[in-house]
């Protein structure tokens, strides 16, 4: 089922000359795990803002084309309505955690919708359990580690029960273990609840094993949209300066000296298996 349909989308921020994104066409189905990447300033964040209506409702500028989320045209529906379809998680947890208590943080969004108290309680409990953060329920943000903060930020949009979760570099302020925790959580949401994921990241090695699709952007446009193994067998990522994971880099180098393999290793684990075979 098609959940996101973007048709010929361009957007230019007010007071700027160049469009930040242009001619974007993109269709995403329910349950996909999409990795969105590209060089700094290529328009990834701008595209995310279009998905829950922050553009055009919150940011001023010139928008062309249409974004249709689960049947709703973002131009015609307010952000709070779209927010129940698309949850947005940002880079800096400090700016997303506005209460001094995790439970309240999770309740914040459904409270805004005016849901009955029992329903809010139910959603908060479910989400705390799902993300395994029950033990944090009474803590303030400054009592949490970076990874925990970001998981609470994710939880705080999940209580709106969105079908789509969009995460804009959610791990860049975290230490590697914290990042791993967050990514595992995201994977779980995708696998167990079939939440559609759009994840922005620069460090591809961590995410590639989970993704079903890679979308590459450069200078405001989508220049590649393919499954991971296909995306990284092309030379495009190298050309625009996107980091190719070691397993694939190694694979490409070994192809050059004439070696042959029957599959592309997307994770270090795959690569290790492949190489062990060869070296035996």
């Amino acid at each position: 089922m098609v959940l996101i349909e973007i048709k010929n989308l361009s957007f230019t921020y007010a007071n700027t000359e160049e469009p930040a994104i242009k001619n974007i066409d993109l269709t995403i189905n329910e349950g996909e795990f999409v990795l969105l990447t590209g060089p700094s300033g290529c328009g990834k964040t701008t595209l995310c803002r279009c998905l829950n209506g922050l553009i055009p409702h919150f940011y001023n500028g010139e928008m062309e084309g249409d974004v249709i989320i689960d049947g709703l045209n973002t131009k015609e529906h307010p952000v709070y309505e779209l927010a129940q379809k698309v949850g947005l998680v940002f880079q800096d947890p400090e700016n997303q955690l506005v209460s001094l208590n995790v439970e309240k943080e999770l309740a914040f969004a459904p409270e805004n919708l005016g849901l009955p108290r029992e329903e809010i309680r139910k959603r908060v409990e479910e989400t705390l359990q799902l993300l395994k953060i029950e033990h944090l329920r009474h803590k303030a943000p400054y009592e949490l580690s970076g990874g925990e903060q970001q998981r609470v930020a994710i939880a705080s949009v999940l209580t709106l029960k969105p079908k789509i979760l969009v995460l804009d570099e959610p791990t860049s302020n975290l230490d590697p273990k914290g990042a791993e925790q967050v990514l595992k959580t995201i994977k779980k949401l995708n696998e167990e609840l079939n939440v559609t994921i759009i994840l922005i990241e620069h460090r591809l090695d961590l995410i590639l094993p989970y993704t079903s699709r890679v979308v590459l952007m450069d200078k405001g446009e989508i220049i590649l949209d393919a499954p991971p193994y296909e995306a990284f067998c092309s030379s495009i990522p190298e050309e625009i300066g996107v980091d190719v994971p070691v397993s694939i880099k190694l694979y490409n180098e070994l192809l050059k000296i004439g070696m042959k393999f029957n599959k592309v290793p997307l994770s270090t684990k795959d690569a290790a298996e492949l190489l062990t075979e060869v070296l035996k």
């Binding site: 922050l54 952000v79 709070y80 927010a83 700016n95 919708l113 005016g114 809010i120 705080s156 949009v157």
Partner: peptide, 23 residues
């Protein structure tokens, strides 16, 4: 700006009569 963006994405100001988890 960034806080506002995050609030907005969590349905801030959706309706006049908000409910509250705690009383």
């Amino acid at each position: 700006m960034s806080i506002a963006e995050s609030l907005e994405s969590r349905a801030f100001g959706a309706i006049k009569k908000r409910t509250y988890l705690y009383q």
